[in-house]
Amino acid sequence: MQLVFTKGAGKHDQMAVVRDGVAVERIECPKQGIIPHDMVHYGVESTLHKRGFVDRILHGEAASFQMAAEEESDGVERLVEVFQADGWSGWTSAPADMLDLYQVTCNARQCAPLELHAEDIEAVRSKLLELSAQWQSVAVGGHLVLDFV
């Protein structure tokens, strides 16, 4: 499966889910000043090999903003939110602070947290910084294609 992100000129970018060379679903991604939310999912899930939004699509679920609750996937979603906050702060939060925020976020949403360590945070951040650099080089109307298996 491929995720094809297209940089939009307006308030949205777009993500297409491509299977066997055919775009089977498209999602509007509101611009947020950093990489698209679903690209953060890609970075987290491909680095940590956890089941979240992108992995659920890979295994046949429809790409929807309202997926059914699922323990690991819910934990991934909370982690994506923490990484988005880090991105909005310049990608410089200390890993220990991010782990603390993740625990608070999971507790507030009554969600079981994933078992994570500072090294996991650093590995995901490295991937997200790589994706950010790639996304910045994409012109409006251009695409960034990411493979997810």
Rank of each mutant, 00 (worst) to 15 (best):
G90F: 14
A133M: 02
T92Q: 14
P36G: 00
A16F: 07
Q66C: 10
R125V: 02
K50T: 10
V140P: 08
V44Q: 04
R109T: 12
A139S: 14
L146N: 09
R51N: 10
V54D: 00
F83Y: 11
V44H: 01
E25P: 05
D97V: 10
F83C: 01
V40K: 00
L79Y: 07
C106N: 14
T6Q: 10
V76M: 07
P95I: 08
S89G: 13
S137W: 04
H41W: 11
V22A: 12
G10Q: 12
M67L: 14
M1Q: 00
M67W: 11
D120V: 06
K50P: 03
S137F: 07
K11F: 08
A62S: 15
A108W: 13
I34Q: 02
E81Q: 13
N107R: 15
E119I: 15
F148C: 13
G21T: 04
F53G: 05
E71F: 04
I35R: 00
T6F: 04
P30V: 01
I57E: 00
A112C: 15
A85G: 15
Q84D: 03
I35M: 09
C106E: 08
L131H: 03
W91G: 01
H12K: 07
P113A: 01
R51E: 07
E45S: 04
L99P: 00
Y102E: 07
V4Q: 05
H12G: 00
H59V: 04
G60I: 06
Q32Y: 05
T47H: 10
R56T: 02
A139C: 11
S132I: 02
V40M: 05
V80G: 06
H12R: 12
Q110W: 07
G21H: 01
F53H: 09
A112M: 14
E115V: 11
A63F: 03
L129H: 06
I121Q: 06
G90Y: 12
E130A: 13
S89H: 10
T105D: 08
M15G: 01
V17G: 02
P30Q: 07
I121P: 12
M39N: 01
F83L: 05
I57F: 01
S137T: 15
V104Q: 15
L79R: 02
L48H: 11
R125S: 00
R26E: 09
R56P: 03
F5C: 04
G33A: 12
S73I: 00
D147N: 14
E72L: 04
G90H: 14
R109A: 15
K7E: 03
A139E: 14
A108Y: 10
K50S: 08
R125F: 03
D20F: 01
L146C: 15
V44E: 04
K7L: 05
A16R: 12
V124F: 02
V17E: 07
H37F: 03
I27Q: 03
H41V: 02
L129K: 07
V40I: 15
E119M: 11
G10P: 13
V82W: 05
V24F: 00
